[in-house]
Design a protein around this nucleic acid. Structure first.
Lengths: 204, 204
DNA sequence: TCGTCAATTCCTGTATACAAGAAGTTTGAC
DNA sequence: GTCAAACTTCTTGTATACAGGAATTGACGA
């Protein structure tokens, strides 16, 4: 079943939408209680904004804040990479390469949506190779929150091709065990997304 | 008034404690509804663990996971420092130095609790100087979660003195605008806490 | 004496009712 | 005609009631 969270990240409920508890309760055929509890969770995750006595709205994220989030994401992923370069196991190496090759197929297939999906798997494989479960959780959470914006910017001309070649550089750096190189390449890879996104905003 | 969160971070409710909704409701003189909503929030913040149909307990954090959290904290603070070295304003510089000098007084006064409190202000000043509000939030959240453990390890012999001299090094690096030096010094400063903590654990 | 199964009790999860505050509308005065 | 104030309506926040699992305890059998 589709959850409220799904509808937010897929933009069926765009930022700013008022979330009427009664309406949601009817739509999901439950009482207001579980809806309220879900909204509190979503507020903690940063997906909705809870204004006391004035209801919930889908969180509005300013371009400024989005850039800030990308900067933090870059650093979290860079840490994943640094740890992975040191700690990756043969199985994880296998998984990372498999995810990378799947991306190659999607790139050649000219399917941005499919590339987007597989790209996520690639990054998840990277998080897992860090051998730091807490870091992995944090990275996954932030990835989820940034998902709609990353998706948007993959439609930019040549972004899929560039993204893939950046992945190649990251894989090479990790497999060679070069921590410093891994860090700079991942940081650049993520920060480029933030920059491309702000280009997109500026062009509107 | 004292909140459930306060009682958890101050260890009045130690990890593993069962949180009976009815009992909490009586103690705070409210119904179960707001208690449940508070527990959901605390679960999102990682302070309590919510087991479906089996109630809530104060989150148990394993030494392993704690070390992982310190690693992430180190990286978040290092990022704060890197950005601060580049962006700090005269007012923020003032605030950072004031917090640092207040720590000096507490160090000389041999008052670990007071030092602990002022130490937090110092780190908060650092977060603020990053000019990244999202990063600041993340850092504050994680600082809050790690608070009880950091407090514990300040009682270790000479830790206050060492902590202060590490602060001095960090301030110098930031004020000189040396990003790389700031990053390594902050990273070490935070990671030492994690290591000291695991020493403490090992000695039990 | 110990283990297993069943019945009871307790607690969580959901629904519903009620109270109180915010928003919108209507009416009156200037 | 416009602005303000009061009243109405709608929505959130809290309390309470009820239903369905989980845990505990006691009895029975090995």
């Amino acid at each position: 079943m589709e959850t409220i969270e799904d509808e937010i990240v897929t933009r069926q409920l765009p930022p700013g939408t008022r979330l009427d508890e009664v309406e949601l309760a009817q739509r999901f055929a439950v009482s207001r209680t579980p809806i309220r509890e879900a909204l509190i969770q979503l507020a903690s995750a940063g997906l909705v904004e809870l204004r006391p006595r004035r209801g919930a709205i889908v969180a509005q994220i300013s371009p400024q804040r989005l850039m800030e989030m990308f900067d933090v994401m870059a650093e979290l992923e860079a840490l994943c990479g640094r740890l992975a370069a040191r700690r990756i196991t043969p199985e994880e190496r296998q998984r990372l390469l498999a995810a990378h090759e799947a991306c190659a197929a999607a790139r050649d297939g000219q399917d941005p949506d499919r590339y987007f999906y597989l790209n996520e798997s690639f990054h998840l494989a990277l998080y897992g190779a860090s051998h730091n479960a807490f870091l992995e959780e944090q990275a996954r959470n932030l990835q989820r929150r940034l998902r709609p914006y990353r998706r948007l910017q993959l439609r930019i001309h040549n972004r899929v091709l560039n993204s893939f070649s950046e992945h190649q550089g990251i894989v090479d750096a990790i497999l060679s065990g070069d921590e410093a190189l891994t860090v700079t390449r991942i940081r650049d890879h993520i920060r480029i997304q933030g920059e491309r996104f702000s280009d997109l905003i500026a062009s509107l």
